[in-house]
Amino acid sequence: MKPLLQTIRLSCGYDSTVVFADVDLEVHAGEVWALIGPNGAGKSTLLHALDRLIRPLAGEVLFEGKSLDHLRPREIARSIALAPQRATAAAWPMTVRDAVSLGRGPHRGWMMPYTREDRQVVEETLVMLGLDAMAERTLSTLSGGEVRRVILARALAQQPRVLLLDEPLTYLDIQYQAELLGRIRSLARDHEIAVVLTLHDLALVAGTADCVALLADGRLCAQGAPSDVLRPEVLAPIYGTSLEIFPHPQSGLPVVLPKPQL
């Protein structure tokens, strides 16, 4: 099967500093990928490169075999959506519905009024994320977790083929974490979406993702199924001995927890 999103010897950085180099990834439709790595390893940078928010220093990103270099920003936005980590949107009294409706912009053209279909997609997305009751509230009145769901809803309203989520679980309490993880899985399975998300909490990785990519020391150190990557011999060189790994009692998937250092 042809990968939906692929990177070929991708190198990214800012000015003259290289953040990572020679990253090769193949993400297929229906897969959930978790990007892990220590702080500053370039997880968000890689996500930005996958959405063409930054130009790579070398190498390229292919969507359905076509280089993002040859796609217009709006075409990319119709297929690839990013839910960023931080929400500056809360600064203005924009309503939840207006914020989510922005996701329709790349489909409709920015000067056209929203159509019936756009409104319907927005309503369904609001319902799906349990935001319909607060659709008329302004972002500044929402909690951190609610704002996160609005950001996700906007990305979903783009009806993307590839969904990029930057730390989607931050600020969410455990109930919404569980709910969101379930939703991400069902989106990938039922709608054949490829999902790439960054996670800093390694305990959540195996239950979330089909595949894991470990970014550290400026390169992709390991990739594969959670049980292949979440191993002491892979993680220890990067995270040191500060973690312990044991199989989940029911699923047998590896669970990674921090080991308090004395």
Binding site: P84, A89, L102, G105
Partner: peptide, 18 residues
């Protein structure tokens, strides 16, 4: 509407294809 998108942040506006 692009102005709306800009108030949501450069990152968002850019990822929406603007």
């Amino acid at each position: 509407r692009p102005l709306d998108a800009l108030t949501a942040g450069d990152e968002v506006a850019q990822s929406l294809g603007l």
